[in-house]
Computed example of a mutant assay.
Amino acid sequence: MTVELSMVRQMWKLLEPVHAILYYAPEVFARAEKLGYDTATRWPSYFAWRAAPLGPAGHELVSATFYSFNPAMVREHVPAAWRVATPGEVLEARLDGVGEALQKLIGDQDLTEAVALTRKLVDATSTAARPLAAANTNLPWPDEPHLALWHAITILREARGDGHVASLLTAGLDPIESLVSFAGVGAAPEEVFASRGWSDEQWAAATRRLVERGWLTEDGTATEAGHAGRDEVERITDELAAPAYRALGADDVGRLAQLVMPATMAIVSSGLLPMRSTLGMGR
């Protein structure tokens, strides 16, 4: 049995919640507060946690790699994040917080085999033109199995995200158009995408551009062309992520899904993750 693109996408959906506790677990927020970040909202620490593998990056690099955020929003938090704590301090704190959160959520689950399989996936993942994946790959592997699993999953999700940016560029979608077109196909309500910092005026202008392109109707709903365009974006994203899964093989991919499922279900059932997200996922 070969690894189909549908399996690649399902694996992303299965693995993503494991990475995402970085942005929602109270144990991680406690580390952010200890470092000195404002935790009234999640954004000061979000930019620090996710950008730290890049080193003391400026807002231009972070805007480029994160893509869908309004650069003005990024500028509010970067490089200010590195005046609170160095990237090295942030990386140490994020592992501490994630480690504590995972131990509470998944307990004593034996992750030895899951770690071995995800490391094979990482080894088969190209980091060429994938800056966030490459930056995380350059970090040392944690010794603890639960953190090694989280680290591997983080590399895989950032590699997929880097590929998604390449797919959006291929489709000719700028950062805000990537969100407007995704909302147009019903991936999430428009208000969910407000977290990316774009103004109502910017959203309306991007909607007009996509109406003129034939991707949206006047009310922002995707046309047939818009649905087809977004389907192609997702297909290319899956195709760019597929080589590692094909190298692993369908049997081992299926086995990995079985092994990770309890951890994913524990995280999802905890209620930590949002009901709807800009990734088009929900709890």
Rank of each mutant, 00 (worst) to 15 (best):
T2E: 14
S6C: 08
M7H: 13
L14T: 08
V18M: 13
V18F: 13
H19A: 07
H19P: 00
E27Y: 07
R31N: 08
K34C: 08
G36K: 01
R42L: 09
W43Q: 08
P56T: 02
G58L: 01
T65V: 10
F69K: 04
P71E: 02
R75H: 10
P79T: 01
A81V: 06
W82N: 00
R83Q: 11
P87S: 05
V90I: 14
E92F: 00
E92I: 06
A93S: 10
R94A: 05
L95S: 13
E100G: 05
L102R: 13
Q103F: 09
Q109I: 14
D110M: 11
L111H: 05
L121M: 15
V122T: 09
V122S: 01
T125G: 00
A129H: 12
A129Y: 14
A133F: 00
A134Y: 01
D143F: 03
P145D: 11
H146G: 09
H146A: 15
H146S: 11
L147C: 03
A152D: 15
R160F: 01
H164C: 04
H164S: 03
H164E: 14
T170A: 15
A171N: 11
L173A: 12
D174L: 06
S181K: 03
S181D: 05
F182I: 01
G186I: 02
G186D: 06
A187E: 08
V192M: 01
F193T: 09
W198L: 04
W198M: 00
D200Q: 11
E201K: 13
A205R: 12
A206N: 00
L210R: 07
L216Y: 02
E218K: 12
T221R: 15
A222F: 02
E224N: 03
G229A: 09
G229S: 07
D231L: 12
L240F: 03
R246C: 04
A247D: 14
L248Y: 02
D251S: 09
V253L: 06
G254T: 08
L256M: 07
V260C: 10
V260I: 09
V260P: 06
V268A: 11
V268R: 14
S269Y: 11
M275Y: 13
M275V: 10
R276Y: 12
M281G: 05
M281P: 06
R283T: 07
